[in-house]
Each structure stands twice: as structure tokens, then as C-alpha cells.
Design a protein around this nucleic acid. Structure first.
Length: 479
RNA sequence: GUCCCCGUCAUCUAGAGGCCUAGGAUGGCACCCUUUCAAGGUGCAUACACGGGUUCGAAUCCCGUCGGGGACACCA
């Protein structure tokens, strides 16, 4: 039974990279009939907030990623929030200490920092560069067993071995590193709260996780984790490290530098969740030459073997293109429902979930890349009167244009107000005046919409409504 | 700096030694369609980072160089 997890820390909104990690894992669970666990890694007390947790849950909900165990759901392996599992970490750590595989380190943070600095100085590094001076920490307490009544961390006693160790990554292949590359790393802080490596390993084991899929930034932390599994006598899960998503500047997509890193920003931009999912999937995963995937196709086709190794750069044009595609192909009802808030927010407070909304969505979604654009184009169908673009007027409401418009107005007066009949008026007038249909349709379009671009003129007139359309034409004739 | 990962069109990628005069998608350009816009159709331009090997044959395997990214916390 496959059991995978997504383990965000609630320190901000749902990040695009996190969302894709969640997606890959979720897809794998759904494909294999396995279980998708949502675990909250809230051990960073400084930064974790309930609001962030909510934001992450909202993001997953919006994307349509549901979990089988975790917050709101429960499950037999709970609790699924790390701060509720403190006693378990303590228990595991005590066992490690008893076996001499971990130790209490009474070195204070200040002392440690001083050691680092001294080392850096000896190596010729400046104070700012101390963290990358290559300092490998071996505590003076690592072989001592006494228990003092003083604040201490618990550290893993790094194995001293000249050799290397490693693992077979499902996407990267074999990776090995020397033991000497690692510190006596911290398991438990002074306050008894676990660090990432400990919490992650204990929880993945306790929750019976079979596959750990995460971003490539975690490759290096896999090594200490591997050692922990060994020390605890547990079998490690399989690991799959996914390539990173880079911003347009080719650096890792970060909340700080890249606004597009926020999943919900795309919702606000009027992108459909299926479009964002499709886009983000193709960043780092492929299935032959396929580009478009429905949710069920993704479930059917996803596999870690299709995940690539190279980081992908965010491509807004492609997102826009996919956004438009999904806008056009998603069932009309669903699009209309999602469009309504954008109408209201976009200056059409009177918009309702009615026939008019659906008709507008049907016509306008062919011409918009997202719901924001769609709502903007819909505005003219609700307003009283319309502001005519001067450039459009100059081009199409010249004397010839007005003549055609006047002719059309006369016939419109007695025409049944339905798209096909209204469309026919254009033809009638163009034949009567022996001019092209564009010479008739464009003046009408400019008169009733204020601009040169709109859906078919018949549909446009019908949706604006007889009275309002004639009123706008009269205004244009007089202008 | 050290270690790890990666390196095919501008971008996302297909490609598992001959199927490749390297394919698809997005973007760009042109044309077609056309009452506008959009969509759609057709076509064009643009890539195997570089240098050595291995092989009858390399985008595919090996080595080196260069380039990019990531990790180096009592963050995750």
C-alpha cells in the first residue's frame, strides 16, 4: 500500500513549489490507490501561524487536492501536527541516547557560534562568510553520558567513518556522500522541540510513509535522515526529489522575490485551477509530447519516472495560454460560477448567476485569457450608455459609417431582437449600400460597445438588449 | 569556498547509440479564414554549452572544462 505525504510548514501562503510537490504526491497516491497524508510541520515556533495553516488548506482546496489523513480528517496515524507529537520525539531521542547514538550537548548557542567564528578566522574567512567556512561540528560532549541540570540540545552522534553512504533516488538516481560531510546535527532544541530531520524521520516512519517526494532543496538533508533511520533500526522510505521551479531571473521561486509563487494570486488573476495544475505539472514532468491534461489523465499518466531532473523557469505566456484553453473547455456552468465573483469585483455589482451571465461567459471566454479579462469585457453589457473610444469613432463613425449606422438603425427598429435576425441586418444594409459587411458591422459595434472588438454583432446586440442598443446607436448618430 | 544536482530552440520539453537533415508546446513572424476581436488552420525562424575520448555510428556512454541551480541553522 502506497502512503505518501505533503508536509508543509505553516509559515506563509501555499507556495507554487509546494503546491506542485503536493500535486505529484497526491497524483501518485490516486494513481496507485494509495493514501495521501497531509502533515503539518509547525515546529518553527517563530514563524508558524494559524493563518498560514488556513491559507495552505485554502490553497489545496482551491487546487482540488484532497487528503485522506491529516487536519480536518484525522486518521489512525495521528496526530498529524508536529507540535502535538512532542512526547513521541522525546521518547525516540531518549532511546537514541540510551544506545549512545545521540547525546546531550551542553554547548550554548553562543559558544557554538564562537567556535564557528574561530574556525572561520583560522581559515581566512570573514565573519559574514563564517557559515560557509566548511566547519564540521564535533561536540566535546559527544562521548559523555552525564546528565546535567543545564539547558542542552540533543545531537546525533555523527558516525565516524571514512567511507560514503547514500541512496537511490527515484528521479535522480544513485547519490553518495562521505560521512565526514556532516555535523553532529541537532535533533532536539533546548526547548525540547524537534528539528526538521528528527520530526520528519519519526513522522514518516510512524505514519508508515512509503515514498517521500519533495523538492531538490532537500537532497542534502536526506543524508542525515538516512543515518537516523539506520540508528533507529527503521527501513527508510523511497525518496524522489523533484526539480525546482525557478523565477524569470532563474533563481528558486521564492515568496520574497516572486509574486507568482503565491498559488492564490493566480486564483485572484482569474486563472482556473485546472489550468494552473496543468501548467505547473509541465514544469518538471512530461508524458511524451502531451501538453494538455485533465485531472483524470494526470492520475492515469503520472509517475515518478516522468519527472525530469532539470529546474524549470516560470513561463507566464504559457500559463496564459493554458488558462485560456481551460477557460474554453471547462463546462460552461462551472466557469460561470467561478466568473461571477470577478464580475462583481470587476465593476458589475448587479451581476447575478443567471442566463445573461452564462451567455456572456459562453461568448467572452473565447476571447479572454482569464476571468479578470472576461469580466472586463462583460462590463459594457451591463452599463447604461457607453463611452466610445475616440480612435474607434474616428475610424468607424465617420460620415460613411454614420450613414450605414443610420440605415441599420431604421431596419433594427422593426427586427426581432434575436441574434440571427440581427446578424441579418448587417447583410441587408451592406447589400443595399453595396459596401462590405465590415463597413456596416463596425459602426454598429463601435456605437453599442464603444470599441472595435466584441463577439458577433448579432449576439452583441441581443445581449445588450433592444432599448439600450438603440439608445446607444442614437447617441452615436448624434455624436 | 565546500559538497550535491543539472546542462536539447527565448521558455517548458520529446529523445534511453543508428528511427534525428533533432519532434511537440508556448512565445515571435507570415499567410489563410473573417463584419471586429479571439479562436482555428498552414507555413517560417531559433537548440543538442565546449573540448577530448569510446564506437562502424553519439544529443544519447565516459572524462575534462565552462555555465546554471541547490544545500551548507538550536529554519523547513
Amino acid at each position: 500500500m502506497v502512503r505518501v505525504r505533503f508536509a508543509p510548514s505553516p509559515t506563509g501562503y501555499l507556495h507554487i513549489g509546494g503546491a506542485r510537490t503536493a500535486l505529484f504526491n497526491w497524483l501518485y497516491a490516486r494513481k496507485t490507490g494509495g493514501v495521501f497524508v497531509l502533515r503539518i510541520e509547525d515546529t518553527d515556533q517563530e514563524r508558524s501561524t494559524p493563518q498560514s495553516l488556513q491559507a495552505i488548506l485554502d490553497g489545496l482546496d482551491w487546487l482540488g487536492i484532497d487528503w485522506d489523513e491529516g487536519p480536518r480528517k484525522g486518521g489512525q496515524y495521528g496526530p498529524y501536527t508536529q507540535m502535538e507529537r512532542l512526547s513521541r520525539y522525546r521518547e525516540v531521542v531518549d532511546g537514541l541516547i540510551a544506545k549512545g547514538l545521540a547525546f546531550r550537548d551542553y554547548t550554548s548557542a553562543e559558544e557554538l557560534k564562537a567556535q564557528k567564528l574561530a574556525f572561520a578566522k583560522a581559515e581566512g574567512w570573514s565573519e559574514e562568510e563564517a557559515r560557509r567556512a566548511g566547519f564540521k561540528y564535533r561536540s566535546v560532549w559527544r562521548d559523555k553520558t552525564e546528565k546535567l541540570d543545564r539547558p542542552h540540545t540533543v545531537r546525533f552522534k555523527m558516525v565516524d567513518d571514512a567511507g560514503t553512504f547514500g541512496f537511490d533516488d527515484l528521479v535522480l538516481g544513485r547519490i553518495d556522500k562521505p560521512y565526514g560531510d556532516f555535523d553532529d546535527f541537532v535533533l532536539l532544541r533546548e526547548d525540547g522541540v524537534p528539528l526538521y530531520n528528527l520530526g520528519c524521520v519519526v513522522d514518516d516512519h510512524d505514519m508508515a510513509i512509503t515514498h517521500v517526494g519533495r523538492g531538490q532543496e532537500h537532497v542534502n538533508s536526506t543524508f542525515p535522515q538516512l543515518l537516523l533511520y539506520r540508528a533507529l533500526g527503521w527501513t527508510p522510505p523511497k525518496f524522489a526529489h523533484f526539480p525546482l521551479i525557478l523565477g524569470p531571473d532563474r533563481e528558486k521561486l521564492s515568496k520574497r522575490k516572486h509574486p507568482e509563487a503565491d498559488v492564490m494570486r493566480h486564483k485572484d488573476n482569474g486563472v482556473l485551477p485546472d489550468a494552473l495544475v496543468n501548467f505547473v505539472m509541465r514544469l518538471g514532468w512530461s508524458h511524451g509530447n502531451d501538453e494538455l491534461f485533465t485531472r483524470s489523465e494526470l492520475i492515469e499518466k503520472f509517475d515518478f519516472s516522468g519527472v525530469g531532473k532539470t529546474s524549470g523557469v516560470w513561463n507566464p505566456e504559457k500559463l496564459a495560454s493554458l488558462s485560456q484553453h481551460w477557460l474554453k473547455t471547462t463546462p460552461l456552468e462551472a466557469v460561470a460560477t467561478q466568473a461571477l465573483p470577478f464580475f462583481v469585483a470587476g465593476g458589475i455589482p448587479e451581476a447575478k448567476d443567471d442566463q445573461k451571465l452564462r451567455e456572456l461567459v459562453r461568448l467572452l471566454r473565447e476571447r479572454a485569457a482569464n476571468l479578470v479579462e472576461l469580466a472586463a469585457k462583460a462590463k459594457v453589457f451591463y452599463s447604461r450608455g457607453v463611452a466610445v473610444d475616440p480612435a474607434a469613432a474616428a475610424k468607424h463613425l465617420n460620415p460613411d459609417g454614420k450613414k450605414a449606422l443610420g440605415e441599420a438603425r431604421k431596419i433594427l427598429e422593426t427586427t426581432a431582437w434575436e441574434a440571427p435576425a440581427l446578424e441579418g441586418v448587417v447583410k441587408t444594409v451592406s447589400e443595399a449600400l453595396t459596401v462590405g459587411m465590415g463597413k456596416v458591422a463596425q459602426p454598429i459595434r463601435v456605437a453599442v460597445t464603444g470599441g472595435t472588438a466584441s463577439p458577433g454583432i448579432g449576439e452583441t446586440l441581443q445581449l445588450i438588449g433592444r432599448d439600450e442598443a438603440l439608445r446607444r446607436i442614437d447617441a452615436a448618430l448624434q455624436g
